[in-house]
Simulated assay, not measured.
Amino acid sequence: MALNQNVKISISGLPGIGDKVQVDLGYDDGAAGTTATSPFAVMVELDGGTDIPLLSDDTLTFQSSGPDFYNPTTLFLKSTDDIVFASSFTTTGKLNVDSQEAITASGVTLQASDMYLGVTKVVTDGVTLLDGVNLLGNASGAINLVGATLTASGIGLIVSTCVNVSTQDSSYASNLIKVAFVQTSSDAQITLSGVTNLNATAGKITLASNSTVTAKATTQPDANSTAADPAMAAPTSARRWPSTWRRSAAAPASAAVAQAASAAGPGPGRDHRDRPA
């Protein structure tokens, strides 16, 4: 596909298969260091389908080799699974990254006019092991920066996880026992480790993580119950891990990171999501 207009590439993977997609904006026009193409917006999105725990995991990886690199007006990366930066990326345009599981940048430099890294995970059901028993309705999301340097006029790192599950009771032992059980958890984290630097040239850095859980188990007598009939329900188990942003103790804090820790408000984020035409 020629980059002579805004480009959107959508890839649908197969459920249960570990889909691997690499984004490479490098090219060779025979004269290294030249800019032979006009800039347009580029969007790459991966829908990998449902993973099988411990067997499959989808990944969208940014890794460019050069010697020249395309400079888009905005680079959008969007995935239902992990997004990994395996090489550095520099653009005079914007960088907008959106994952439903995790974003990782290790040992790389990311530079843009404006930068948003966001992870949003929403779970509305778990696994019904038995009727009335709902397990593993878990949501986790993370941004991991390891020895990375991010530079932009504004930087937003946002992680949000939400669980909203419910189950209705089911009868066992010839209606002698009714069971309604829910197990769930939600975990949102931002972790900065190694020598990681966040440089906001306009002084706008936002780090925000939010984790919520709504779990409901419903049990009630049936039409044949009497006042003497006991009603039983297993207790609901719901865990809401504290949403955190963390910096490794081994990494020296910079002024930019210190400012990020106290930043409040929406900051650079969803309102920066320009879409290619």
Rank of each mutant, 00 (worst) to 15 (best):
M115P: 04
T161Y: 00
G137K: 02
G132Y: 07
Q111F: 05
L176A: 10
S153L: 13
G147E: 12
Q168E: 00
G107V: 12
V133R: 00
S160C: 06
A105R: 04
Y116D: 01
S140P: 00
A173N: 15
A105C: 06
T167V: 14
G147A: 14
C162P: 05
V159G: 07
Y116I: 08
I158F: 14
K121C: 01
S171W: 15
A173G: 10
L117I: 11
S171C: 06
A102T: 04
A148F: 10
S170E: 07
T161K: 13
T104I: 13
L117A: 10
A105M: 11
L157R: 14
N164C: 09
V133N: 03
V122M: 08
A152H: 08
D114G: 12
L130G: 01
T120V: 12
T151P: 10
Y116N: 12
D125K: 15
N164T: 13
N138I: 06
A102F: 01
I143K: 01
G154I: 03
T149M: 04
Q168I: 13
G154H: 02
G132C: 09
S153M: 12
M115E: 01
V122Q: 10
E101Q: 10
A105V: 03
T161G: 06
L157W: 10
T167R: 03
G141F: 11
D125P: 08
S166L: 06
S153H: 10
A173W: 13
A142Q: 08
T120C: 03
G141C: 04
T167H: 02
L135A: 07
V119D: 02
N134V: 02
T104W: 07
S174G: 07
Y116V: 13
V133P: 05
A139Y: 05
A173F: 14
I143Y: 00
A142L: 08
E101G: 00
I143S: 02
Q111A: 11
A152Q: 07
D125T: 14
N134P: 02
N138C: 07
Y172L: 15
A148R: 05
T109A: 11
